[in-house]
Amino acid sequence: MIKKFNDLNYYELLKIQYNASSFEVRQAYKNILAIYEESSLATYALFAEDERKAILGKIEKAFSTLIDDEKRNAYDKSLVDIGEIPKNLLTAKERQKAIPLIQVNTAMTKDNNLARIRKKIKEQGTGKLASVMLNRDFISGQDLKNLRESLGIELEEVFEATKISPTALEAIERDDLTNLPPKIYLKSFLKSYAEVLQLDAKQLVEGYVKNMEKS
């Protein structure tokens, strides 16, 4: 059931999970701004000036809170206190943070990781399988997963290279409609995924979205 816009908490407003990574927060912010900013065709003549201002103000506030670790922790606590989110959220978030590779020198591990993936792709060759997949009208998450696994690439490696949370990646690979990120975010996730596997991003996005919409 839809809540009134004003009652949404920051996570609901940006449509992200409570344990979303900062990459996802940034992505979500970019996408929601594209909808509500003044020059957007998507809300052309839809809001009175003061309404739009209020909405943009709230979006700004949400972003600046969730992108700052300290502010975000305080905000999460306040949500727990009023019972909006379960207590175990904070530990769940810790878990995601605890994946060691991103806490070490992020830039370096990301590069190493990408190099490792590239090497695997070179050894195994995505060639035939990828082109068969991309030339199909419909591409499922299972197709993607099959391709990734046949290259011997772990889901965690894709996570490290893209910074898309494992939950979101898993939902993508399982065609798990209920847990997929909203479509406008999904597209940029798929693009990042395609880049990591050195696939044609446009074809992948088109095929995946088509397949998803059918079900």
């Binding site: 399988l129 997949m133 199909r136 009208d137 299972q142 197709d143 099959n146 696994e149 397949n211 059918k214």
Partner: peptide, 11 residues
Amino acid sequence: EKQQPIQIKAL
């Protein structure tokens, strides 16, 4: 309409 996922083995 639905389409089946590709079978890796067959490829």
